[in-house]
Simulated scan of single mutants.
Amino acid sequence: MKYQPKNNLLYLGVIILLILCCWLLNPTLSPIAPTASATYQQKAVHSPDGIGKFYQGREIAKVMGHTGASWLERPQREAEEQPSKIVNAIDLKPNDVVADIGAGTGYLSFRIAPLIPKGKVFAVDIQPEMLDIIKSLKKEKNIPNVEPILATVSNPNLPSESVDLAIMVDAYHEFEYPLEVMQGIVSALKPGGRVVLVEYRAENPFVTIKPLHKMSQKQLKKEMQAVGLLWRQTKNLLPQQHLMVFEKPQT
């Protein structure tokens, strides 16, 4: 009997060793595996327009690189998308601080900035080449209240509770880490701050955009609810896109 405790310890050690070996070979089997495995799913078979990573049942689209900058600045964009209606519809105040997330060339940032002379626009992008374009255009247009911000794929790098309005135009569906980015945006919003999402309408088959670059209202509401944002309204004023408004609770 006096040797039984040692045997029990030996058996316990073997069990722990087996558990560790299993975890090292496949972390998703372990109860202490990272929660990211539950948030995102990776699939070998996927759309050629996506990255094979799924969030809330949606495959994430590939990012449009800086080589497509000229498409953002195309002369026919106003006729096709009517972005001036976006600027007029978001109820800006002169001292607002706006974060243009996925700003690209700053197409929208430079249209918002003159309307908030006592505020500023954080032009946020993950591509340094896009921010170089914004810096050049800022100087050329002499619009001082546009501030370029280099983000990462998982963090918008915005100050806490500093933003009245965060806007994303045809950008959210490309976020590699949508949950983490939106958590960062929510943290950056002031209480009662708003998020405006503009996305091509997935509900309409006549919107001739690749499927992964469109989103439905139902999907957007589900993903914004996951970070605690409240849906306030959808404005159907654009030819092909939803304009959806969400709000951070006051408390």
Rank of each mutant, 00 (worst) to 15 (best):
L197I: 14
A171G: 13
I134F: 04
A69W: 07
D164S: 04
G106V: 02
T251N: 15
L137D: 08
A79G: 11
K235T: 13
V207K: 00
G228T: 04
T105G: 07
K222L: 14
K118E: 15
V198I: 15
E81K: 05
G228Y: 10
I167Q: 01
Q82C: 10
N236E: 15
V45A: 11
R232P: 00
I101G: 02
S160D: 14
I112Q: 00
I134K: 07
S30H: 12
L72W: 11
V146H: 01
V198L: 11
D100A: 09
K2N: 03
I167K: 03
V153Y: 11
A79I: 12
L179E: 07
L17E: 02
M130Q: 09
T152M: 04
Q183I: 05
H242C: 06
K235P: 04
Q82G: 03
I15R: 03
A151F: 06
G228S: 04
V207I: 11
N145C: 00
L108K: 05
L238C: 08
A36Q: 09
N157V: 14
V98R: 02
E140I: 09
A171W: 06
L230P: 00
R58Y: 08
L158R: 02
K53C: 02
K210R: 04
I112E: 01
I15N: 02
Q76L: 11
Q76K: 06
I116C: 09
E140W: 00
Q225L: 10
L150K: 10
I134T: 02
E80A: 15
R77N: 11
L158V: 12
K120V: 04
M215F: 03
R194Q: 13
G106Q: 01
V153S: 12
L179M: 04
A113R: 03
A113H: 05
K53A: 00
V245H: 07
T105N: 04
R77V: 05
E73V: 02
Y11Q: 08
I15C: 11
E174K: 01
I86W: 05
Y172G: 01
L220K: 11
K62N: 08
L24A: 12
R77A: 01
F206C: 01
N142Q: 15
A69Q: 13
E199G: 07
Y11G: 08
V87Q: 00
P249Y: 05
L18P: 01
P159L: 01
I185P: 13
N8W: 13
K235D: 15
E176H: 08
D132Y: 05
D132P: 06
L212P: 03
S30W: 13
P75R: 02
